[in-house]
Each structure stands twice: as structure tokens, then as C-alpha cells.
Design a protein around this nucleic acid. Structure first.
Length: 491
RNA sequence: GGCGACGUGGCCGAGUGGCUUAGGCACGGGUCUGCAAAACCCGCUACACCGGUUCAAUUCCGGUCGUCGCCUCCA
């Protein structure tokens, strides 16, 4: 693509009026309390968020990308209210699956973890949303993990057995509160694997004793590695402290991952672990969950070969984060059309000649619409991050702006105001790329377009059309506009 | 079986006790244009089914049917 990608502009700060409108409505759904509740950060003016990132044994797919996108959009929204945000997103780089992948490929687990950590950062980086503030690796937090396990053992919430250390589910009365599972029900279906020494089928490993040829770290309970779940507790608590604001991740993590996190964290702390649990819906392909085990996945890196980042982001923004979301090429193609519509608006705004101030009858009404849609936008976002509703407001405003633009009844200053305001809203949704319509044109193309204009003027339409086809072949579209032409790169 | 969520017009997708014809895509008609594209205007106007509550229900309650997710791989 030839359009120039500039560096991300500074996050916008909404006007006091807009911030006030948002704060009056601000509510976030909490999976634990199963209700949308008023939200204010624990630390005044500063939001603390932790989202579960990937276990790196493979490239991430679009389903994995959803929480990443959501978390960064949430961060932008909170920042636009004038708050600071610390977003932590972990990379789990030691796990059974990583070891298995290494064995399968005949290489070290470390090699696997490094390759796919790098790939994850690279792929998500290409989305252009920026990065979480902290991206801690499990293997770099073994001391914190051991400290947490030590606390659990000391408080009799965990016990060593056969080289492993297990969390004692029966010691934590709240077990099951997040996933709404009854421990009795769960026990009836659970089994203990032959090589495990846990006392209760529901107990889970916080430390796994090393078997021959497995990676291990020293610990008071013998060499081993962290169990799944404990790294997220240790790292979120290290960077955000007990009772941080929002813990997010896919719905499918509610059990066992987050349930176990709550149990071990609160057992160790003796106080509330997280204030709001935010879980995003699954991506479905043909009504079925997109999942590595089902093999119906679309890798983010493959998607980025075919689609622009903003097209993928708009696709994600077009439905509420908690809803399950159908995935298909048709929907991505539709998102592409919508991106194009937004981009066209900025193209028009970019070289809009403007009516004379005295002759701009649409100014008043359009600027009034702007205020109305801006307010509606922040209210939608404040309502549990309703990006789909917010996007609807942007498009509603887009139509009004285009309409005024088409009739040339908008002043240059009003057009400028609208352009900046729209850019601000789009930035919050991670769609600032659609505002960047500057690009460099090869001289050859410009000359061809100019020649075509001369042919048209001479009514030599056959040659004019031939030139247009030639320009199209070189990747540009010619649009005739009053008094000239416009060249636009083809999608 | 237990737990959770959901069924909106051709498709996607917000939302609400009685004017949002949300919004987008697609489609049809028109304006503009040599043609085309973009843009604008107009049209297509729904709320799974059956009861109940209500002056009024797509929105509240109950039931039926259907769908999805979780119940130790899973974003």
C-alpha cells in the first residue's frame, strides 16, 4: 500500500463536557457479579487492567486477537477521559504445550517459546494499536511465583505432594464463585490422572515437579515449573496490586483459568483480587468456536496478509465485546467497505475547498449534529464499551458531513472542526489509520491522469478510458471531481 | 445433566415499555457524470413461537423450539 503511515498521534482528551457525559454513564459488566455496574478506578484517575495474553506455542489466530484489540481500545477510551492507564498483558512462555511442541519438533522448549513470543509481538504490533504497558513473561517471574506459592503453603491453602504443589480447593470457600460451578457437581465428573498425587480431584497444580528431560527451576519443593494459572496471579499482583480494576480475557478462560486465579490469589492475599472481570465472547466459524483444537482457525498473520489492520479492527469493533462473533471473509470484506467509506470522507475533507463563511448554511446544523453524535459516542463507550453503538454514531455523523460536503454548504473552518472531531473519535476505536489519506503518487501516474484530462477535454474518450485502465492496472483509481481529478490507491 | 449467554429486516449488528424508520453491507430507483467511481437523495422497515402482565411489548414475566460457550487443551 502506498498510503503513508504516520506515527500514532497523541491520544485525544475529550472536552470536559464529553468527559462529564461519559462519567455520568460509565458502567462495566462484571462477570463475577453478573451485572453491569458503575465503574470508577481504584486509584483515583488511574485504571489498572490485566488481560490474559497467549501461551506461546503457536501463532495467534483472530480469536486470540480479539481481547488484545479490546484491551487497547479500552485503554484508549479511559485515556480519552483523562485517566492514566496501566495495561498489563502477559506472555506465558512455559507450559506443557510449549514443551510438547518442542518435543514434537525436535527442538528446545525455549526455542519454541522465543519464536512464538516474537511472532506474537510482531503480529500484534502490525495492528498499529500500540502495546500494553507491561508484557511480563512467566519465566522471568519465577521468584514472584515461588513467593506466592510459599504464601499459599504457609497458609495451608496448598500442599506439596510427590514433587508437585497443589492448591487445596476445599480450603477456599469461594471456589466456583466466578464460573458459578458447584464443587460437588464438578467432583462428579473429575478424575485424577494416575501420576498425580493430589488429595481432591479439583485441586490443581501451582507447581509441577520436573520429570526427566523437562525444564525446571529450583524451589523449596524441588525442581519444577509453574502450573498454569499461577503466573497470572503472581504477575498481575506484582504490577497492579491487590484489588486492581479490570481483569480480562476470553470467556473460555473463566473456568478453570480465572476461577483458579481468584482462588489462589485471594487465598494468599486474604482480600479481593479483582474488581471487575471482563470476558469477551468467542469467535465462531460456521457457528462453531474458532479454536486450535478444532482446526478452524484463521491466523492473525495470515489475515494481515489479506486485510489492512484497520479493516480487522473495524470488524472487531462492529460487535459488542461480550457477544460471540461470527467470523467469515464476507464480514471482513464488509469491514473493508466500511473502512473505505470512512477513508473517502477524509479524502473529501482533505481537499474540500469550502464555502465562504457567509455562505455556509450547513455549518450550524452540522456542528450541532457533531455535538449530538459525540455525546452519543461517549455514552455508548461508557456503557460497557459498546463499540458497535459508538461506530454507528460515527457513521451517522459521516452521512451528515458528507451530505453537507456534497452540497458545498460547509465552511472551511467547520469542515476542519469536523475532521478533527471525527479523527478523535476514530482514534479511540483504534481506527486512526482511516484518517491518513496522504500518500505519494508516482509522477508517471500523475502524468497519465493529466494526459487523460486533456483527452477528455478533447472528447477523445476512447483514449481517456484506455489511460484510466492503464492507471487502474498500476494500482490507482481515477475519480473525476469538479475541476479536476482525484487519484486514490486501490484497496 | 449443571452453569452462563443468545435468537432483530437479504446479510452483519446496536437498542428501547408507546417518535431511535440505530448504523453498515448488499440490492433497486434517482441526482451528478461522456462513461465510471465517490458522494448525496429515495425505496426495501424487522424484532423465533405460544401465553401472561399492561391503556400499550420487539423491549417485562412464564413456557416451547432452536443456537452457542464452559464443566480442567482453549482468547
Amino acid at each position: 500500500m502506498s498510503e503513508v503511515r504516520q506515527s500514532a498521534e497523541a491520544p485525544p482528551r475529550f472536552s470536559p463536557e464529553l468527559v462529564q457525559a461519559a462519567l455520568a454513564e460509565l458502567r462495566v459488566y462484571d462477570s463475577l457479579r453478573q451485572d453491569k455496574l458503575a465503574f470508577a478506578p481504584r486509584d483515583s484517575g488511574h485504571v489498572t487492567m490485566y488481560f490474559c495474553g497467549p501461551t506461546v506455542y503457536n501463532y495467534i489466530h483472530l480469536g486470540n486477537a480479539r481481547p488484545f484489540v479490546i484491551s487497547l481500545v479500552a485503554k484508549r477510551f479511559f485515556e480519552s477521559l483523562g485517566w492514566g492507564v496501566t495495561l498489563v498483558e502477559n506472555i506465558t512462555d512455559i507450559d506443557d504445550r510449549i514443551i510438547a511442541k518442542g518435543n514434537q519438533d525436535g527442538r528446545s522448549w525455549k526455542d519454541v517459546a522465543e519464536e512464538f513470543s516474537d511472532a506474537y509481538v510482531e503480529d500484534t504490533q502490525r495492528l498499529g494499536l500500540g502495546r500494553p504497558d507491561i508484557e511480563p513473561r512467566a519465566t522471568e517471574h519465577i521468584p514472584e511465583i515461588l513467593e506466592l506459592i510459599g504464601k499459599l503453603v504457609e497458609r495451608k491453602h496448598a500442599y506439596p505432594a510427590g514433587g508437585d504443589v497443589y492448591f487445596d480447593v476445599s480450603s477456599f470457600t469461594g471456589y466456583g464463585k466466578l464460573s458459578k460451578q458447584q464443587t460437588g457437581e464438578m467432583r462428579s465428573g473429575a478424575r485424577i490422572a494416575p501420576d498425580e498425587d493430589k488429595h481432591d480431584p479439583l485441586d490443581f497444580a501451582v507447581w509441577k515437579g520436573a520429570k526427566p528431560d523437562e525444564p525446571s527451576w529450583d524451589s523449596p519443593w524441588g525442581p519444577g515449573r509453574p502450573g498454569w494459572h499461577i503466573e497470572c496471579s503472581a504477575m498481575s499482583l506484582k504490577y497492579l496490586g491487590a484489588g486492581f480494576d479490570i481483569h480480562g480475557g476470553g470467556r473460555d478462560l473463566i473456568f478453570p483459568h480465572h476461577e483458579n486465579e481468584v482462588a489462589q490469589s485471594e487465598a494468599a492475599l486474604g482480600e479481593t483480587f479483582v474488581r471487575f472481570w471482563a470476558h469477551n465472547g468467542m469467535l465462531l466459524t460456521q457457528e462453531e468456536k474458532m479454536s486450535k483444537s478444532l482446526g478452524n482457525i484463521f491466523l492473525l498473520r495470515n489475515a494481515l496478509e489479506e486485510y489492512e489492520p484497520e479493516e480487522l479492527i473495524l470488524y472487531f469493533m462492529s460487535s459488542h465485546y461480550r457477544s460471540p462473533m461470527e467470523f467469515s471473509r464476507e464480514l471482513l470484506d464488509e469491514a473493508r467497505q466500511q473502512v473505505e467509506r470512512l477513508r473517502n470522507q477524509f479524502r473529501t475533507l482533505g481537499d474540500y475547498p469550502g464555502a465562504a463563511e457567509a455562505d455556509a448554511p450547513a455549518d450550524e446544523a452540522t456542528l450541532a449534529s457533531l455535538v449530538q453524535h459525540q455525546e452519543a459516542f461517549v455514552r455508548e463507550m461508557a456503557d460497557d464499551l459498546n463499540t458497535a453503538g459508538a461506530l454507528g454514531e460515527i457513521f451517522a455523523l459521516t452521512r451528515k458531513v458528507n451530505s453537507a460536503l456534497a452540497s458545498r454548504s460547509l465552511s472551511q473552518t467547520a469542515a476542519e472542526t469536523l475532521r478533527n472531531a471525527l479523527a478523535e473519535l476514530l482514534y479511540v476505536l483504534g481506527l486512526e489509520a482511516v484518517t491518513r489519506v496522504e500518500f505519494s503518487l508516482p509522477e508517471e501516474i500523475v502524468e497519465m491522469a493529466e494526459e487523460r484530462q486533456r483527452r477528455r477535454a478533447a472528447r477523445d474518450f476512447a483514449e481517456a478510458d484506455r489511460l484510466r485502465d492503464a492507471i487502474t492496472e498500476r494500482g490507482y483509481e481515477v475519480r473525476d471531481v469538479p475541476g479536476g481529478f482525484k487519484l486514490v490507491p486501490l484497496v
